[in-house]
């Protein structure tokens, strides 16, 4: 079987979403910082929805402990997450434009990596790293909207994960409960609920500029 052509994929999404919405999603430049439980799943959802320009950054490799919640497979263990993610995303859309950064993000390189994005997803796991990234984006990249994940560990309490606009350009998704305070650690369903909130916030921001 041959892959559908670029036009075929394009027309299929256009017929589903309508041309106005489809074209907005297709043109948007989206950044994802961190390709763990949140980022790897957000990326897959956004590419399915028609996002065609992605910038991703992660310094890590796929590990056996990731498979419980991150969008990777056993045969990808040991590979850089940016490469493993690209492989899977291109199975959804082989014509995707993806800019990969296999490196640790710091205040000095963040503007160069994400400066051209319309919206950036903060998908790190360590709180101080989350704060570092968000501060760098909001201080040094004016006009960029940031969607962040904060609190998604444990099980149950699905409806406690919510999306809120906290600053002019900052949206936070999660329940605000630290990993250390949630029983069960990080599990796929709640991580995916939070990732779903974040991807949905991105789509809404692309289409109407707000939630």
């Amino acid at each position: 079987m041959s892959f559908p052509s670029m036009d075929e994929l394009d027309h299929t999404l256009c017929a589903r979403h309508g041309p106005e919405i489809h074209n907005k999603i297709k043109k948007a430049k989206i950044g994802i910082a961190g390709l763990g439980g949140l980022g790897s799943n957000i990326a897959a959802m956004l590419v399915r929805a028609g996002v065609s320009y992605l910038t991703v950054a992660d310094f890590d490799i796929v590990d056996i402990t990731n498979i419980n919640r991150q969008n990777y497979y056993l045969d990808q263990i040991g590979r850089p997450k940016v490469d493993a993610a690209e492989e899977l995303l291109k199975k959804i859309n082989p014509y995707l434009t993806i800019e990969k950064h296999n490196m640790k993000l710091e205040p000095s390189n963040i503007p160069n990596i994400f400066g051209k994005c319309d919206i950036v997803c903060e998908a790190f796991d360590v709180p101080s790293e989350k704060a570092m990234l968000i501060n760098a984006l909001l201080e040094k990249c004016p006009g960029i909207k940031v969607v962040s994940g904060s609190g998604m560990a444990g099980f149950g309490r699905s409806n406690e994960i919510r999306t809120e606009r906290l600053f002019a350009d900052l949206y936070i998704c999660g329940d605000g409960i630290d990993l250390e305070d949630a029983k069960g650690g990080l599990m796929s369903p709640r991580v995916n609920i939070c990732a779903g909130h974040m991807a949905n916030a991105v789509i809404s921001l692309i289409i109407k500029g707000d939630m």
Binding site: G37, F124, D125, I134, S148, G176, L179
Partner: peptide
């Protein structure tokens, strides 16, 4: 003033 605190997990 708006203060946002971040928690672990992702």
């Amino acid at each position: 003033v708006e203060i946002v605190g971040f928690v672990g997990g992702g």
